[in-house]
Design a protein around this nucleic acid. Structure first.
Length: 422
DNA sequence: AGGTATTCACATGAAACTATTCTCTGAGTTAGG
DNA sequence: TAACTCAGAGAATAGTTTCATGTGAATACCTGT
């Protein structure tokens, strides 16, 4: 049976191939030309992986104080005492995650080397859809790191708690759970989960939590009890300034490129510094600029490539968001696009009317106003529209909505969305 | 004129509901000894 | 009798509806001068 299928698959590909070989002489030439050219062009990247988010630098710059704080708080774990729970906050791209992860791996290494008390680190990113964004899934992830597999659904959550505490309490060990983007988790499922974990009573094991968030006001939204136990220690990561960003970029660029000018790096640093000192953004900028330079066949990144990269990043972001929008959200966006063709701001009420009309035409289920309101909020967080709540006095309160899609891609977006309805 | 009350058109929040996917359990069925 | 099948109960989850409550300022309505 299987061989049979394979045979046909093979036949099929051969047929495709023969099409190229015998009927498409021109195509063949073009394609191979691209490959040839690619081979010949010497890449300006030495090692591109250094510029991806997944890369963790060996040495973290300009975070000595924070690293020290972290390690001194966590040190007791080596001797088998429970370290305080830590609450790490600071803006995006300020190095929170990198620092925490580095300190923890070192802690683990030292403990292993000196045969100290057992330490187990569990890192979870709570914003990862379908991975750790609910109480159940977080627990299941934690259990997985103990090599206990649990089904995705069907089991009561209490069972997972029971399994987890049982497993943890088997040995005299310190478990350190890192919850990255903890604010996303709490917003979604509340803080009961944190309470349950921090107040677990165990015979011999100890559990410490490290919560990482980029929302400075996050801790206020917590239950007092949780707040006091999770926030035993707090560490604040300040944004990098332009000089520090420059150093960081320099460090990466040396590994990533064969050669690069200082002006380019300064430019990336300056742009990112304006946007809350986000190092991740600076590095993205550098990478995309490199990609652009490579594509246009330049031998080195120029400042104009950085400008183009800045443009491209924002455009890609919007385009990506729009493409992955569910049907209903697209319908709402469709209505907004239509309405903004002859004016630049619309109100919720107008959108609702247009939207209902569109649904009737397309045989789509009409959602309630409440839901549309939420969809509008979602579109705003994607950066597709800009909505501010205004009061028009006697004439009620509404959202004033404007498109924030860059002009250059507006037509592209329209074609994309309009094609799906009529 | 100056002050206050009303009112509009939604916003915002919480809880309940729906559909889907999945587990677990136990009763009934089947095949082999 | 062990192994398998299958239906029903119960969970988790995403997406939504239902119900309830909130809200800011332009207007309407007073009040006293």
């Amino acid at each position: 049976m299987m061989y049979h299928d394979l045979f046909f698959a093979w036949r099929y590909t051969m047929k495709q191939a023969s099409l190229i070989f015998y009927n498409g002489e021109g195509i063949e030439k073009n394609v191979s030309e691209i490959f040839e050219r690619y081979l010949q062009s010497n890449s300006i990247f030495k090692d591109k992986s250094v510029l991806y988010h997944s890369y963790f630098p060996e040495r973290i710059l300009h975070r000595d104080y924070e690293l020290m704080q972290l390690s001194s708080i966590l040190a007791p774990a080596i001797k088998g005492y429970k370290p305080s729970n830590i609450f790490v906050y600071g803006g995006v791209g300020t190095g929170k995650t990198v620092c925490v992860r580095q300190v923890l791996t070192q802690l683990e290494n030292v403990a292993k080397k000196h045969d100290a008390k057992l330490i187990k680190i569990i890192y979870l990113n709570c914003k990862m859809k379908k991975t750790a964004d609910t109480e159940y899934r977080v627990l299941s992830q934690i259990l997985e790191s103990f090599n206990i597999k649990v089904p995705e659904t069907g089991l009561p959550t209490e069972i997972l708690y029971k399994k987890f505490f049982e497993e943890v309490d088997k040995k005299d060990q310190t478990i350190i759970i890192v919850l990255d983007e903890i604010d996303a988790l709490v917003r979604k499922i509340g803080d009961e989960f944190l309470y349950n974990i921090t107040r677990a009573d165990l015979e011999q094991a100890r559990i410490s939590l490290i919560g990482i968030t980029n929302s400075l006001t996050f801790s206020n939204s917590l239950d007092i009890r949780v707040k006091s136990s999770l926030g035993e220690e707090e560490i604040l990561f300040k944004p990098y300034n332009a000089m520090q960003l420059k150093d960081i970029l320099m460090q990466r660029a040396e590994l990533a490129f064969y050669k690069i000018s200082e002006e380019v790096i300064a430019k990336c640093a300056a742009i990112a510094a304006q946007e809350h000192g986000d190092a991740r953004r600076a590095i993205d900028l550098l990478r995309v600029a490199g990609e652009i330079a490579e594509r246009v066949g330049a031998s080195e990144i120029k400042e104009e490539h950085v400008d183009m990269a800045e443009e491209k990043i924002s455009v890609d972001c919007v385009l990506e968001a729009i493409k992955s929008l569910p049907k209903q959200s697209q319908a709402v966006l469709h209505s907004i696009l239509k309405l903004t063709e002859n004016k630049n701001s619309v109100m919720t009420g107008e959108i609702i009317i247009k939207y209902r009309e569109l649904c009737r035409k397309n045989g789509l289920r009409i959602l309630t106003q409440r839901r549309i309101s939420d969809i509008l909020n979602e579109l705003e967080t994607f950066g597709i529209i800009e909505a501010k709540v205004i009061s028009k006095g006697r004439y009620g309160r509404t959202r004033e909505i404007e498109l924030s899609i860059p002009k250059e891609i507006l037509d592209h977006v329209k074609r994309n969305i309009y094609a799906n309805f009529k």
